[in-house]
């Protein structure tokens, strides 16, 4: 199933999503490296904080200005309810607020926020990690970003079938990390999947420069 390109934005015209405070946590490389900024989002109620322990510092260490977002209702963001549209709005707002075009990375239900947000912001690249899209059919992304789907085939919440379905939707083969678990950014084996994702991004950036 595909969704048509939505140019008329009916609901956003009649009833725009109101502002709500967002939380953005960041770890930046010591010296600028010219690598694109990263912006992580998850579906976890703790929000940005799930990325601050391992992933943000390691990504920064590898030269990426690393940011994580709490959308409304999560972590240190405004304690207000929001649906997928509001969360995608928060993601697009956060992405547009950075100085240069970021890579967007969504984990778990955050991948659903990302998939929706990609229609509102032309990410430099997008990574859907252990995606839990449920029954939602993602809209066509703006600006045709390179897309990576990654996860643990043994993860009960985003099982192999979900990884393959999401990959098929975007026309890519999922990258599999056996044993990484669902919350791979918090597990003991947090480093391997992140390194693989960052290697993929490094290769993209090299190709862009060439």
């Amino acid at each position: 199933m595909t969704r048509r390109l939505d140019v008329t934005r009916g609901l956003d015209y009649r009833d725009p999503v109101p502002h709500a405070h967002r939380e953005i946590l960041a770890v930046l490389p010591e010296d600028p490296t010219g690598k694109p900024p990263l912006l992580f989002v998850s579906g976890d109620p703790r929000g940005a904080r799930v990325f601050t322990e391992h992933w943000l510092p390691h990504a920064a260490h590898r030269g990426f200005p690393a940011h994580a977002l709490s959308v409304r209702g999560q972590g240190g963001a405004a304690k207000v309810k929001g649906d997928l549209r509001a969360h995608a709005h928060d993601l697009a707002q956060a992405a547009a607020s950075l100085a240069t075009r970021p890579v967007l990375l969504g984990h778990g239900k955050g991948a659903a926020i990302l998939a929706e947000g990609l229609a509102r912001y032309p990410a430099r690249a997008a990574v859907l990690i252990a995606p839990r899209l449920g029954r939602t059919v993602p809209p066509p992304p703006a600006g045709e970003p390179p897309i990576l789907v990654a996860g643990d085939p043994g993860d009960k919440r985003a099982p192999q079938a979900a990884l393959e379905k999401t990959g098929a939707h975007y026309g890519v083969a999922p990258l599999l990390f056996q044993g990484a678990g669902h919350d791979m950014m918090l597990n003991a084996a947090w480093r391997e999947p992140l390194d693989a994702i960052l290697d993929w991004l490094d290769k993209l950036t090299e190709e862009e420069r060439a």
């Binding site: 140019v7 015209y13 502002h19 709005h89 697009a92 547009a96 607020s97 912001y121 032309p122």
Partner: peptide
Amino acid sequence: RPLTEFPDFPMPDD
């Protein structure tokens, strides 16, 4: 504002 902004680069919502 919400009707004016570019569809893929929102104006700050505050």
